[in-house]
Nucleic acid binder design. Sequence first.
DNA 1: AGCCAGGGCCGCG
DNA 2: CGCGGCCATGGC
Length: 282
Amino acid sequence: MQKCYSSEFFNATDTLSCGQVFRFYAYKEGFILFSLDKACYVYTKGTETFLQCNDDDEQYFERYFDLDRDYSLIVKRAKKFGGITEIASNFGKGIRILNQDTEETLFSFIVSQNNNIPRIKSIIEKLCNALGEEREFFSEIYHAFPTAEIMAEQDIDFFYSIGLGYRAPYIKKLAQDIVSGTVDINKMSNLPTIQLKKTLVQLYGVGSKVADCVILFGFHHTDAFPVDTWMEKVYKEDFNGNLVDREKIAQGFVEKFGEDSGYFQQYMFYYKRGFKRLTVLI
DNA sequence: AGCCAGGGCCGCG
DNA sequence: CGCGGCCATGGC
């Protein structure tokens, strides 16, 4: 199945290389992208973006790419704030905030802490190749994201061996807690953002910033504003802020931007990191 | 070679 | 509470 969309507010490169997802690689005119055990081929050519996947996965990826939402309205609202908010939204207007699987997002952003994006991609790829079920797309073998059950069975040395470093115990404990039922991600999906965050930060290895990423990219609650080193730069350089506590910085932005916080944050993160197209590294 | 990366934990005051 | 040291690893 192949579908075609206008590329103005749905650009493949912008959406994948803005740091919200790590399982993709450059392929032909665009990217092969994986989510859970599924795969798709997405590419932008001029004014059009094309999406190819198995017929059974069509609805999954339309929701995944948030295709029912009108992003022109979001960019329009960003314009009203002027400054970097406006500039960044125009720069990154091809970004869609993905509806990713919550469990995969949680594991992925624990990996992301104090780490750089190429290495995050590499570690997650090793994790999937080692433990994920084999699938096939475009006649090529790939691996699904591993289940918590399989991860929970692994010795801690396995997690060190794929380069997780001090994050290894975080990943192992989360897998074990999911299997035992101590952590129930499905129960979290009904919680309002404040409660959701309180629940997430109780997890070992999950702090304010990782929680905000999971809230935004996994649960698609857009009243979250993840503040990492790059967003701290934005705060200081472009908003002349003087707070130090990233949690308080995030709160200030959410008060300012409300339900648009997550979108605007992603525009600014992408803009501030510059024109890095991570595809050259793959 | 040395700083940095989509930070968080833990002990201390 | 708020702060600072520390944590593995490799990209650049």
